[in-house]
Amino acid sequence: MTTTGSAPRVNPVYRGRSGQWAFVGHRVSGMLVFLFLLLHIVDVSLINISTELYDEVHALYGNVVLRLFEVGLLFALLFHSFNGIRIVMVDVFPGAVRRERRLLSAVVFLTLAAGIPGGYVIMKPFIDGTLLG
């Protein structure tokens, strides 16, 4: 049998700093959006089975719990987008590695700057009290 392809484990726990958190965040956010997409293809497809069924299922997206989930999805999408742009920038301009920490701060700042107002808009019907429960 061949090996499983793993490198010799010199130090099994890699402890990078901010860059490692960026990697983890990128992986988790990408995975979350991907899993949502799989479900989303099914919920959108209901429209061809029956528009009433589609409306019924889609109305669920309006409840508080799912709205909170959508805010999470928004943050995941924003972080993944800005961090993805950062990765591409560093690949294209290798010199940018020297500004690595600052670029990552910009990613976090932009995610919050777009995510907080966006999250507010998504939660607004609930905050206003138009949406109860």
Binding site: T51, Y54, G62, P125
Partner: peptide, 8 residues
Amino acid sequence: NDVVETDA
């Protein structure tokens, strides 16, 4: 648009 408006 709000999510609840994204109906059929």
